[in-house]
């Protein structure tokens, strides 16, 4: 039988740490026994312009490693909407940054417009927006345990960024908690 697939896209612009978020999430999921395939853009856009990290998550083996239709879309920049929207499932979970991705397509889908980058700036660096987003994604989707992602974050963060990253993750969870509570 085909394995169950759950597809996530981190979409934004080059330099936002989308690949790092994807890698951390994949390693965390792997530690829970899930299989993940990650693909990304290999273009000069990695230095600005649309950029993405796509994850295909499966309980069994990932048959086709490229995304087919997203179950979850994390938008850190307006640029990511156009290339992603047509491949997003109608009832997909959409998480978007209020500041860098202000205008979302109209429609009846579970969208969460959260101040991800503003929260990161308040914590001390816009560079951890990707980690805030990761926290929010995990709070809303529950695709992996908080302990798993924290373990990966501790193992893979440079020492100078560890505290900031852990704070950013916690802030992401906190940002999404009221929304998640309201939805349940």
């Amino acid at each position: 039988m085909a394995a169950t697939r759950f597809e996530v896209r981190f979409g934004g612009t080059g330099g936002q740490g989308l690949l790092l978020s994807g890698k951390m999430l994949a390693d965390a999921l792997a530690s829970e026994g899930k299989n993940v395939a990650q693909s990304q853009t290999y273009e000069p856009t990695s230095r600005g312009g649309f950029c993405n990290a796509d994850l295909v998550i499966a309980n069994g083996e990932v048959d086709y490693p490229l995304p087919i239709a997203f179950d979850c879309l994390v938008l850190l920049d307006q640029l990511a909407i156009k290339p992603s929207w047509s491949r997003t499932k109608p009832n997909a979970l959409v998480i978007a940054d209020t500041r860098n991705c202000p205008d979302l397509p109209a429609g009846d889908y579970p969208c969460h417009h959260l101040p991800l980058s503003r929260t990161a700036i308040e914590l001390g660096s816009e560079r951890v927006t990707n980690i805030v987003a990761l926290g929010a994604l995990l709070e809303l989707s529950g695709i992996c345990k908080r302990a798993s992602i924290e373990r990966v974050l501790r193992a893979s963060s440079p020492r100078s960024f560890l505290d900031l990253n852990l704070d950013a993750l916690a802030a992401g969870y906190a940002l999404a908690a009221p929304v998640a509570a309201a939805a349940s």
Binding site: K23, A26, D27, L29, A30, K34, N35, V36, A37, Q38, S39, Q40, Y42, V62, P65, L66
Partner: peptide, 8 residues
Amino acid sequence: VIAQSSET
């Protein structure tokens, strides 16, 4: 694709 995609 096989070269540059990653898998766990």
